[in-house]
Design a protein around this nucleic acid. Sequence first.
DNA 1: AACCTAACTTAACACTGTTAAGTAACGGAG
DNA 2: CTCCGTTACTTAACAGTGTTAAGTTAGGTT
Lengths: 213, 213
Amino acid sequence: MGPIERRQREREEIRTRILDAARELFVAEGYEAVTMRRIADRIEYSPTAIYFHFKDKDALMGELCAVDFYTLATQLTKIARVEDPIERLRRIGKAYAGFAAEFPNHYRLMFMTPHPVGTLPEDAMQRHGNPEEDAYAFLKATVAEAIAQNRLKPEHDDAELVSQTMWAGVHGVVSLHIAKECDPWVEWRSIKTRVSTMIDILVDGLSKQKRSK
Amino acid sequence: MGPIERRQREREEIRTRILDAARELFVAEGYEAVTMRRIADRIEYSPTAIYFHFKDKDALMGELCAVDFYTLATQLTKIARVEDPIERLRRIGKAYAGFAAEFPNHYRLMFMTPHPVGTLPEDAMQRHGNPEEDAYAFLKATVAEAIAQNRLKPEHDDAELVSQTMWAGVHGVVSLHIAKECDPWVEWRSIKTRVSTMIDILVDGLSKQKRSK
DNA sequence: AACCTAACTTAACACTGTTAAGTAACGGAG
DNA sequence: CTCCGTTACTTAACAGTGTTAAGTTAGGTT
């Protein structure tokens, strides 16, 4: 049973070649600006060959997003390894913002664009809830720990709600940055300052004792 | 000089008919889903007639956005007429969220989509900084008042930075709602709860004395 | 040697925003 | 009244998109 395995391996190989080419283009120029024909050009195949490996352009992007969700989650769990849950919360926020700054075009598709339900591939759905592979679950676990340690004000006892608010706060800063970066309408403070300020104010508003630093 | 005025009036008339048709479609289905041909159909003109009145699809949408920026600003100044600047801050946040909930498709284009610089029409640019016509200026003025009345913690003395953080917070909630509403990944709390919580936590983190209610 | 199927390519379809070329109506000048 | 030119359109077409249908070729099986 040698050749049939080789075939499958070759199939995987070209699949990842397509994904790599697509990722590079999408990251550099964004979803809409990249055409199937240009992806095909880059790997020296005909445009329709891609459809043999992916259902359509959405599915191709969906797979890339799924990988990025995973990347983000593992990145967070590595960067934010620290005892104190409040400090971990701060680091999660910063790392999340760092991810958005590094891959703005991916971030746009992951978090700023409405997707019809069921666009994500199956296997990505499986990872739901596992803090090692799901960034939101990791955040929620940290918030739950802070609540369990009695570090938050008593009115903030819903880990889900607090997590969603923390997420929304940092997301607000970075997404507004991505969308309005070049807008001369507003005298923007630096993105780093804005992220730090957001986290400081939220943590201040949430936690019991005033912050030390 | 009768007929030449009539011509101009007629020109304005068809212009606003195009705008109305486009607005209705954009609001209902979003920018990408609406084609020039369908806008033309609705006003019973040929597709190319639109180009006689607007440079391109972007310019058409740009004009609608400009109107909406103005609508948002005047809506805010009306709803948020109240003495206490902190309370006014809260109301601004709620009204802003209400606007996003009412016109999600417009909101997407106004605040969630990167636009190349110089897309907005000239006259919209003029209103920059006037609190009666510029929502951000209104927010900033309110924050400045709160600072002047010594209501915020001393470290939050930059009205620009505080405004940007307040804005980002509420924007984060509503934009995440628009983009991820149908995502079963997260057990979302209700949008009203999330907006209120965000505002409460931010105001708590910003202001000196603890909140009464 | 015949056949089958996987992995492609070429041609084409339906659709998009947009432009070029043609046409009818109207207001004023000779 | 006739000629002319501008204004406001229409029809036809272009270049580009994602995607599908119909061939083609190579490799493995029988």
